[in-house]
């Protein structure tokens, strides 16, 4: 309580205390971070699994991550979970409403697309039929919206300059796709499924990791040249305890090490070693994904309410 009151009476840049671990309700506010994380990687996994790998099991796990994981995390976070349906009522102005509508649409469409493959053979379509393909296309489109909307939620907060940037949606989207690739790879490896085109997946992952690294560098550069509050956010990200999550986990373990492992696996002479390296890379990527989202939420600082000269 002491720390929270300190933030409320802080004359300088004020940390947002509502979203992410360490908020007003400490651990319970972390459920929102988990919702963003699970939503991103789940939607990403569905897209990668159905588009590149054609694995029903992996696609179904992606659907569960969004439909169950993200939903439960949101309900845990809400102050009044029994009224959750009200969140869908204002899509005209609120990104949370839009995001939840995308999520409901994705779950419905993805479930309908996968239904014939999951044993619901009584449905009057197959996944290969033109209606099934239309369902898949719509599910992929809504999955993309689920992956990107949380970036828009953060970017819409005008007084938090480290969030109020056009970089947020592409950053969250790229991390979600990369998380999807990592989850697909892990699911296929653990499940013992045959990965038909592993090299395509690995090449896509390397490309995504490079893009993510470039986006993170641009994000940091942007903050360094922005308002005092954004520079303070950057200071917190790089020289406080948060640096362990941001520099150590998100950039080091979550980007640079997986990038090195992804390139190095080609030189591994044994197939088993290459698979182990790629699996390790996938786990680190997921840890990096969670860390980058946590760091961005925690480094969100409101611009001071006053200016000198009052």
């Amino acid at each position: 309580m002491d720390i929270l009151q300190y933030e409320d009476f802080q004359p300088g840049p004020r940390a947002q205390m509502e979203w992410g671990f360490g908020g007003r309700r400490r651990w319970r506010d972390g459920a929102l971070l988990m919702a963003l994380f699970l939503g991103g990687i789940g939607a990403g996994q569905f897209v990668v699994s159905t588009w590149l790998v054609e694995s029903v099991t992996s696609a179904f796990i992606g659907l569960l991550l969004v439909g169950v994981g993200k939903t439960v995390a949101h309900l845990v976070y809400l102050g009044q979970p029994a009224r959750f349906y009200r969140l869908l009522l204002r899509p005209r102005t609120s990104w949370i409403s839009r995001g939840l509508i995308f999520m409901v649409a994705f779950v419905g469409l993805a479930a309908a697309y996968l239904a014939p493959e999951l044993g619901f053979e009584w449905v009057p379509w197959t996944s290969e039929s033109s209606f099934g393909q239309a369902l898949w296309l719509a599910a992929v489109a809504t999955a993309a919206l689920v992956m990107v909307y949380d970036g828009f939620v953060l970017a819409s907060c005008k007084s938090i300059t480290s969030w109020n940037t056009a970089l947020m949606p592409p950053l969250f989207f790229t991390y979600a796709v990369a998380g999807g690739v990592a989850m697909t790879y892990l699911t296929m490896t653990v499940g013992g499924g045959e990965l038909l085109d592993r090299e395509t997946l690995v090449r896509l992952d390397a490309m995504l990791l490079t893009t993510m690294f470039a986006l993170v560098v641009i994000y940091i550069t942007n903050m360094a040249g922005s308002t005092a509050a954004a520079r303070e956010s950057l200071r917190r990200l790089t020289s406080t305890r948060l640096a362990i999550a941001f520099i150590g986990l998100a950039i080091g373990a979550g980007l640079l090490v997986p990038l090195a492992l992804t390139y190095y696996h080609e030189f591994a002479t044994e197939g088993a070693l290459a698979s182990t390296l790629l699996a390790a890379s996938a786990i680190l990527e997921l840890a990096g994904d969670l860390s980058v989202r946590h760091s961005i939420l925690r480094a969100g600082l409101h611009v001071p309410v006053f200016s000198e000269g009052l």
Partner: peptide, 9 residues
Amino acid sequence: VGCRYCSVA
């Protein structure tokens, strides 16, 4: 519902 988007915004 206590989503606190307003508090953040």
